[in-house]
Simulated assay, not measured.
Amino acid sequence: MTFIWTLALILFFTKVAGDLSVRLGQPSVLGKLLIGIILGPAVLGWVQNDEFVHYLSEIGVLLLMFLAGLETDLDQLKRNWKSAFAVAIGGIILPFIGGYGAAAAFGLDTSFALFMGVVFSATSVSISVQVLKDMDRLNSREGTTILGAAVVDDVLVVILLAVMMSLLGGDTETSIGLLIGKKAIFFVAVAAAGWLIVPWFMKLLGKMKVTEPVVTTALVVCLGFSYFAEIMGMAGIIGAFAAGLAISQTDVRDKVEHKIEPIAYAVFVPVFFVSIGLNVSFDGVLSQIGFVVVLTLAAVVTKLLGGALGARLTGFNTRSSFAIGSGMISRGEVALIIAAAGLESKLLAQEYFTSVVIAVIVTTLVAPPLLKAFLSQGKKETTDNK
Rank of each mutant, 00 (worst) to 15 (best):
residue 1 M to W: 02
residue 2 T to N: 03
residue 2 T to M: 01
residue 4 I to P: 00
residue 6 T to C: 06
residue 7 L to T: 07
residue 7 L to W: 00
residue 8 A to S: 09
residue 10 I to A: 04
residue 12 F to N: 05
residue 12 F to H: 01
residue 13 F to H: 03
residue 19 D to M: 05
residue 20 L to Q: 10
residue 22 V to K: 13
residue 23 R to P: 04
residue 28 S to Y: 02
residue 32 K to F: 00
residue 35 I to M: 08
residue 39 L to D: 01
residue 39 L to K: 01
residue 40 G to S: 06
residue 40 G to L: 02
residue 45 G to T: 05
residue 51 E to T: 15
residue 53 V to W: 03
residue 59 I to Y: 00
residue 60 G to R: 02
residue 67 L to D: 12
residue 68 A to K: 04
residue 69 G to Q: 05
residue 69 G to I: 12
residue 70 L to G: 07
residue 75 D to L: 10
residue 82 K to E: 11
residue 83 S to Y: 03
residue 87 V to Q: 01
residue 88 A to S: 12
residue 95 P to K: 06
residue 99 G to S: 03
residue 100 Y to A: 06
residue 102 A to C: 06
residue 111 S to W: 04
residue 115 F to C: 02
residue 115 F to G: 01
residue 116 M to L: 09
residue 124 S to Y: 02
residue 125 V to Q: 01
residue 128 S to T: 09
residue 129 V to P: 03
residue 129 V to Q: 01
residue 131 V to W: 00
residue 134 D to G: 09
residue 146 I to N: 06
residue 148 G to P: 12
residue 149 A to F: 13
residue 149 A to G: 14
residue 152 V to P: 08
residue 153 D to N: 12
residue 155 V to Y: 00
residue 156 L to P: 00
residue 161 L to E: 08
residue 161 L to M: 09
residue 164 M to L: 12
residue 166 S to C: 03
residue 173 E to V: 13
residue 174 T to S: 03
residue 175 S to F: 07
residue 175 S to N: 09
residue 178 L to G: 09
residue 179 L to A: 04
residue 180 I to K: 05
residue 183 K to R: 08
residue 184 A to W: 03
residue 184 A to L: 15
residue 190 V to T: 13
residue 192 A to N: 12
residue 198 V to R: 01
residue 201 F to T: 10
residue 202 M to R: 12
residue 202 M to T: 14
residue 203 K to Y: 03
residue 216 T to N: 15
residue 220 V to Y: 09
residue 222 C to M: 15
residue 223 L to R: 07
residue 226 S to N: 13
residue 227 Y to W: 10
residue 235 A to C: 07
residue 235 A to I: 04
residue 240 A to F: 12
residue 244 G to E: 10
residue 250 T to M: 05
residue 250 T to A: 02
residue 253 R to N: 10
residue 255 K to L: 07
residue 257 E to D: 14
residue 259 K to V: 12
residue 265 Y to F: 08
residue 267 V to R: 01
residue 276 I to V: 15
residue 277 G to K: 06
residue 280 V to D: 04
residue 282 F to L: 11
residue 282 F to C: 05
residue 285 V to K: 11
residue 285 V to D: 10
residue 286 L to P: 00
residue 295 L to Q: 03
residue 297 L to G: 15
residue 302 T to M: 04
residue 302 T to G: 03
residue 304 L to T: 06
residue 311 A to G: 07
residue 313 L to H: 06
residue 318 T to R: 02
residue 319 R to F: 09
residue 322 F to D: 04
residue 324 I to E: 02
residue 325 G to C: 09
residue 326 S to F: 00
residue 328 M to S: 03
residue 333 E to V: 11
residue 336 L to Q: 09
residue 341 A to R: 07
residue 345 S to F: 01
residue 350 Q to I: 00
residue 352 Y to V: 14
residue 355 S to R: 05
residue 358 I to L: 07
residue 360 V to P: 00
residue 371 L to M: 13
residue 376 S to C: 06
residue 377 Q to L: 12
residue 380 K to M: 11
residue 382 T to K: 14
